[in-house]
């Protein structure tokens, strides 16, 4: 397993944001966490990246306990994240944002670096057109593409995607999800957090349902898509 989360508890002040969560992410797969607003999905990703303090439990990446490592050390190990609400640097151009994504790399002048920029442009041709535009002036969809592209620039082994479809037009949502599949097929392991359960389950190898800070159901994407209670709670009118 590339990532293992064991009995994780995280508090937000006195409120328990997540309780005794355990799951793992297999190398080369797409794993998804679905659930309603406030279920603890974003907290889980932030904790894996090191932005939230762990009260109990462990986070293990590629066999190493990273529970108490600072965020930047985790990026160096190969975990990068496209945060919720995109988190692009508004005062930086697309180019500078992509450079920031590669902050932990020391090979800015190398051919490998240029290849990675090319790869991001292949996935998101829009970014090439907007190369020297300041990120703060771009549309929500473009910023989402930039945030994902930027996360890939670190050459991560595991990329965490927090609500990549949030606030996007339906046509763009389809596009973003097929790009996520493409990223995965190119060899990057993906941990995807989504409210758009139908799409996420269709793309994911493994899936977990979070409810008020706990995992209530786990299975393959196909299994959960067919699960009656998941259908009722999260897929509703979609199917």
């Amino acid at each position: 397993m590339l990532l293992e989360v064991e009995d994780l508890c995280v508090n937000y002040g006195h409120i328990e944001a997540i309780r005794n969560i355990s799951f793992s992410v297999a190398e080369g797969e797409i794993t998804t966490l679905i659930g309603a607003n406030g279920a603890g999905k974003t907290t889980t990703l932030k904790t894996i990246s090191g932005l939230r303090k762990v009260r109990e439990g462990k986070v293990v990446f590629d066999g190493t306990d990273i529970t108490h490592l600072p965020p930047y050390a985790r990026v160096k190990m190969g975990i990068s994240q496209s945060p919720e609400g995109r988190g692009c640097f508004p005062g930086m151009t697309v180019r500078e944002n992509l450079d920031m994504g590669a902050f932990v790399r020391r090979d800015r002048k190398s051919a490998a670096y240029r290849e990675d920029i090319e790869r991001v442009f292949q996935l998101f041709p829009r970014l090439q057109e907007r190369f020297n535009q300041s990120a703060g002036t771009m549309s929500g969809g473009e910023q989402q593409m930039l945030a994902i592209g930027r996360a890939l620039m670190a050459r991560p082994r595991l990329v965490l995607l927090d609500e990549p479809s949030m606030g996007l037009a339906p046509r763009l949502i389809q596009q973003i999800f097929s790009i996520i599949t493409e990223i995965n097929q190119q060899g990057t392991t993906v941990l995807l957090v989504e409210q758009n359960a139908a799409q996420a389950l269709r793309r994911a190898h493994q899936a977990h349902v979070l409810e008020t800070g706990e995992i209530v159901r786990s299975g393959t994407g196909a299994e959960l898509s067919g699960d009656e209670s998941v259908k009722a709670a999260y897929l509703g009118g979609d199917l």
Binding site: Y72, F89, G91, M92, M100, G101, F103, V104
Partner: peptide
């Protein structure tokens, strides 16, 4: 500059 604009996002970049 990254920390000045968004400290959390900067941390996620490995700053």
């Amino acid at each position: 500059r990254a920390v000045a604009q968004d400290p959390e996002a900067a941390a996620l970049m490995g700053v």
